[in-house]
Design a protein around this nucleic acid. Structure first.
Lengths: 226, 226
DNA sequence: ATTTATCTTAAGGTCAACCTTAACTTTTCT
DNA sequence: AGAAAAGTTAAGGTTGACCTTAAGATAAAT
């Protein structure tokens, strides 16, 4: 029944969803930090959301999405990532900017448009950054992958996803060819942990640890072993 | 430079644009009526817009868009109608509903997305209701057409556009096959002006005068006459 | 057990976008 | 010229979404 809630409350739901993949309560301060607002304002909004039965809040214990809250948040993520695909694939907009653009669009459409869009795009399962697109029925499968920093040396791996999806680091990675699907290989490690020497396709680059923390990779199967 | 202005002010600009095709001042009351708000609130907003130099207001004389205001409004109409095309053509959503859906989307994108969308759609010149899509540089050509009610009897004509683009009448027209491009012919007139007998394609329908006032037609060229 | 850090509530403020009621001015119409 | 209609300003209100500062409560960590 598409309960209408404004852009701002929606951002809270989305943040809560992102901050608690498995459903543990989230501190209000971390929500506030993520949205760049004061804890007091976040607290206020959480109470508003609680009145609408979208979240449950236990004082000093944190917030959790209720069932309808979680459904709404998941639907938002779905919309967001579908718009990202659209913007990147159909409109050819640059990878680094689609996240921010999709952030606006996600609040402007309901299920009708979303599902038509999904159908139009062929029901993609990943956003351009490699993150999974929840299905209409609500399933989400995060690809199993680990941070690039934890990859063994000289072990080939495929970039599965990059998270989070916006900010200067994305352009940095994009400029260096680090996008989902490419094969990477660690060729060297700075002894003090400052950066990695990484081969990306043909090229070799140095990747700061902050950037490397955002890149999740799946090691390629080495041999015919099960 | 894409001056950011919220959805609400944007709706005022759009309304002003629509209410004064040729640039004559518009009464605040009519803006208020169109947006469904009180004249007092409209007056307030007009003053806010005046501070931003988007409109000019002369007391008791009406409001007029300034150059930047008109540019912004035209850009909005462009976005709106491009989204309509997208929703109808690419997503296959029903003709009667694309207007309202596009109303949300138009506030969610800037020039970058708009132009990419336009390119993607092949730079269409008309929205699904037949109304012209302003070009990126700001040209608008309204197809010459007259209200269906003014068409001579038994004279074939093509439906050029339907305006306004939303409301119950649209579904009414859509259900009867009255959409841009079809050929219509008046076969009879109610002596007291209540309705028209119209042939639409193969079928014959009765069309109320309220509905007929929204349908703009271009008479087919009868012969080889210049 | 006490401190520290986190969290929450209280109090008061801002701004945008609406609302109503009421009074007043200007234009327009008869 | 006078009345009606349209438009305007004033005054006071509401709601949502933010803010700051300050005080109080709880949990966690020493």
């Amino acid at each position: 029944m598409e309960t209408a809630i404004g852009p701002s409350p929606e951002m809270y739901l989305k943040s809560l969803w992102e901050l608690s993949a498995s459903g543990e309560p989230v501190g209000i301060a971390s929500v506030a930090a993520r949205l760049g607002i004061s804890p007091v304002s976040a607290s206020e909004m959480i109470h508003r959301l609680e009145k609408r039965r979208l979240v449950e809040h236990r004082r000093y214990r944190g917030v959790r999405l209720t069932r309808p809250g979680r459904d709404h948040a998941r639907a938002l993520i779905r919309r967001h990532r579908l718009w990202e695909r659209f913007l990147a694939d159909e409109l050819g907009l640059p990878w680094e900017s689609v996240h921010d653009l999709a952030c606006e669009l996600e609040h402007a459409v309901g299920a009708e448009v979303t599902e038509a869009l999904a159908a139009r795009l062929g029901h993609p399962r990943r956003c351009p950054h490699g993150n999974p697109i929840p299905t209409a029925s609500g399933e989400v499968r995060l690809p199993s992958a680990k941070p690039l920093a934890e990859l063994e040396m000289h072990r080939a791996a495929t970039v599965e996803r990059i998270s989070p999806e916006s900010g200067a680091l994305l352009s940095y990675l994009a400029a260096r060819g680090v996008v989902p699907g490419v094969t990477v290989l660690i060729e060297g490690r700075d002894p003090f942990g400052g950066f990695l020497q990484v081969r990306v396709g043909q090229e070799e680059i140095a990747l700061g640890e902050e950037a490397a923390a955002q890149v999740f990779v799946a090691p390629a199967e080495l041999s015919e072993a099960g």
